[in-house]
């Protein structure tokens, strides 16, 4: 059944939305793209008064097929590795011009954990007043799903294929947040598309602090992770609820907040939805060991960050996504 549209046309409605949307429709992200969603949510939380520096990657490619652009904010892509430095330059320029416009850098995990890490470290060390947002989809998706240092242990990618000698990626996911924290910047946090209110709150906090801020946003990739298009949020939520992707906030390198997990799910709830972990469900002792390994990694996170909820609250893994009649979720 197709519903009647209201009297205003979609293009009229689009112009009259109650919040500014920095990322417009018509971009060429895959169906169900978590990064497109994450970028949309982040730019919404930022508002229009910003300059954005964007690293090479899916987000860059799917938003800027000349002569079209999906951006409604001033935006610059330079190269893969230099995003934090470009943002540093923008910030220096605005400071010199005494303008208060915010500067935000966007990068994927490849551009952040790997090739852009040095420039990022420099930006953080110099404490530029820049919010760096990393959209973490845990592999080089733009080039066809190659492993990055952010790819989880044991995950399949085209360069970490499982086979007779290997069970997916041999190495661990890089603990980037700890590296970031070691710069003792004013604010660093992990976030996810599964908890949009929490994400927006963190973005606002990151913009509010004077100095460098960093947020890594877990952004599901249906294509690279091998889950159904519709399940991105489900998968991302389970990443948090299993303890595999802890939601934490750090100020000056110290842990100041963590989203408690009210009901801790076994990691298999998360892994089972994704083809990149399919080989771990084979009837094979090594697969079983790797499953146990991933469970222990989650347990370790839960222990280290104290993630197990003591009692239910509205900011824990069950409460943080609660919706209200009438919308406009808190934060």
């Amino acid at each position: 059944m197709t519903l009647e549209q209201p009297t205003k046309s979609c293009s009229e409605l689009r112009r009259a939305q109650p919040v500014f949307r920095g990322l417009e429709a018509g971009h060429r992200a895959c169906q169900g793209c978590g990064q497109a969603l994450a970028a949309r949510l982040v730019t919404e939380a930022i508002g229009p008064d910003v300059l954005i520096a964007n690293a090479t990657g899916c987000l860059e490619v799917f938003t800027t097929a000349w002569p079209q652009s999906a951006w409604r904010v001033p935006w610059l892509h330079s190269v893969f590795a230099n995003t934090a430095a470009v943002a540093s330059g923008m910030e220096a320029a605005l400071k010199a011009q005494k303008r208060n416009t915010k500067v935000v850098a966007f990068g994927g995990d490849g551009g952040t954990f790997d090739i852009g890490l040095q420039a990022l470290s420099g930006m953080l060390e110099r404490n530029h007043n820049v919010l760096y947002v990393c959209f973490d989809n845990e592999a080089y998706m733009n080039t066809g799903v190659q492993r990055s240092s952010s790819t989880p242990h044991a995950a399949e990618t085209t360069t970490s294929p499982p086979g007779r000698e290997r069970a997916g990626k041999r190495h661990l996911k890089k603990d980037l947040v700890t590296i970031i924290a070691a710069h003792r910047i004013p604010y660093a946090a992990t976030a996810t598309v599964a908890y949009p209110s929490d994400l927006r709150k963190k973005v606002r906090r990151g913009l509010q602090v004077e100095g460098a801020a960093f947020i890594v946003v877990h952004s599901p990739c249906p294509l690279g992770w091998g889950h159904e298009n519709a399940l991105g949020i489900e998968v991302a939520r389970l990443a948090v609820q299993t303890g595999l992707y802890p939601m934490i906030e750090l100020e000056r390198g110290e842990l100041v907040g963590a989203m408690p997990i009210r009901e801790v799910h076994p990691v298999t709830d998360y892994l089972r939805l994704q083809d990149r972990f399919k080989h771990l469900f084979a009837d094979d002792p090594r697969a079983r060991e790797e499953l146990e390994h991933l469970q222990e990694l989650a347990n370790h996170n839960i222990e280290v960050y104290g993630l197990r909820a003591q009692k239910p609250d509205r900011f824990d893994s069950e409460g943080a996504d609660t919706v209200r009649r009438g919308g406009m979720r808190t934060a």
Partner: peptide, 8 residues
């Protein structure tokens, strides 16, 4: 005048 620089 929020233009986009560095397109594909």
């Amino acid at each position: 005048d929020p233009i986009t620089l560095g397109t594909v």
